[in-house]
Simulated assay, not measured.
Amino acid sequence: MVAGLSRRGARAGAAEYPGLTGLLGGSFNPAHGGHRRITCFAINALGLDQAWWLVSPGNPLKPSDDMASLRARLKSAEALSRRAPIVPSAIELELDTRYTVDSLKKLTRRYPKRRFIWLMGADNLAQFHLWKGWREIARTMPIAVIARPGYNADAMTSPAMVWLRRYRMSAASIRRQEKWSAPALVFMRFDPDPRSATAIRRANSEWASVYRGAAVRDRLTFRRIQDWQDPEGFDE
């Protein structure tokens, strides 16, 4: 979203702007410099207009005992995205979707003139074949996979990669595309980033207390996010 737009103007811009937008989903528990770095790398490599961080309301595949509130996680994403073309959002609350495949279908219907590309790490590609409707996700929009140390070998030999390999293309081809076609897969490598949310939580289990009581409003939906808005049952 362009700084300085009115709320009405921002909504119109999000609905009508024909630029290329990256989508990075995750718990962001908390958001950290590694998230920012890989996102900025993808923005530059693929010629993205901006990237949206889809902060998941919840994920039962991850332990819930150390999962911070949605408000704290969205606030941490807000702090890490400053001065970058990154828009954090908990829009899945408004979309009322449980699975990624449903979220992406609803996003493409909600913003029909905006082109999207799904961003994910090699660790996700390694288990992508376990996601509900993973082939449908691939047919909905192009996928850009960012190399991640320790996961690349599993990703390149995964069942999903066997199917997606025929659709592989370069980042330069993505930048030159006038019209999107999917499936399409881009595999990108860059200097590894050692930072992780798990390490941050181990070093400071009370990290979310920094955001206690802090107001947060979703920059895409303009909804105020409350601590109680943490529905269970969300996963990939």
Rank of each mutant, 00 (worst) to 15 (best):
T39F: 00
A14F: 09
F28G: 00
G19H: 05
N44T: 11
G33T: 12
R11Q: 11
G47M: 11
N29H: 00
P57D: 05
G22S: 00
R7S: 15
D65M: 10
L54P: 05
D66E: 10
P30V: 00
Y17V: 00
N29T: 08
F41C: 00
D66G: 07
W53Y: 14
L46E: 14
P18S: 01
T39E: 10
L23A: 03
A31E: 09
S69N: 14
A51Y: 07
G26P: 05
L5V: 09
P63R: 07
E16W: 13
N44F: 04
A31W: 13
L48Q: 10
G58L: 02
A15Y: 15
A14E: 12
R36W: 07
G47T: 07
R8H: 07
P57T: 08
A10Y: 09
D65V: 04
S69K: 15
G9S: 12
W52Y: 02
L54S: 03
P63I: 08
L24G: 00
L46W: 13
W53K: 14
F41Y: 07
G58D: 15
Q50E: 03
R11D: 11
P57E: 03
I38V: 09
L46T: 09
L23P: 02
I43V: 14
L46V: 09
A10Q: 12
P57R: 06
S69T: 15
R8Y: 13
D66F: 10
T39N: 04
Y17N: 10
D66S: 14
S56Y: 03
G25C: 04
L48W: 07
R71L: 02
S6I: 06
G13I: 12
A68H: 11
W52P: 05
P30I: 00
A45T: 10
S56V: 02
L20W: 03
L20K: 15
G47V: 14
T39P: 04
L48C: 07
A72G: 14
L46S: 06
P60D: 08
P57S: 12
T21N: 11
H32S: 08
N59R: 06
G26Q: 06
N59A: 02
R11P: 12
G33V: 13
N29F: 00
R8T: 06
K62Q: 08
C40M: 09
A15E: 15
S69P: 11
G58N: 15
R7I: 13
S69C: 14
S27V: 03
A42L: 02
N29R: 03
G25M: 08
R7T: 11
D66H: 10
P63S: 01
T21D: 02
G22D: 00
L20V: 14
C40F: 08
G19R: 07
A31Q: 08
R36L: 01
T21A: 02
L70C: 12
A14R: 12
H35P: 08
G13T: 13
I38W: 06
Q50V: 01
L48V: 14
G13A: 14
M67G: 13
P63Y: 07
A68M: 03
H32D: 12
I43C: 04
A10V: 05
S6D: 05
S56R: 04
M67E: 13
G13R: 12
R71V: 08
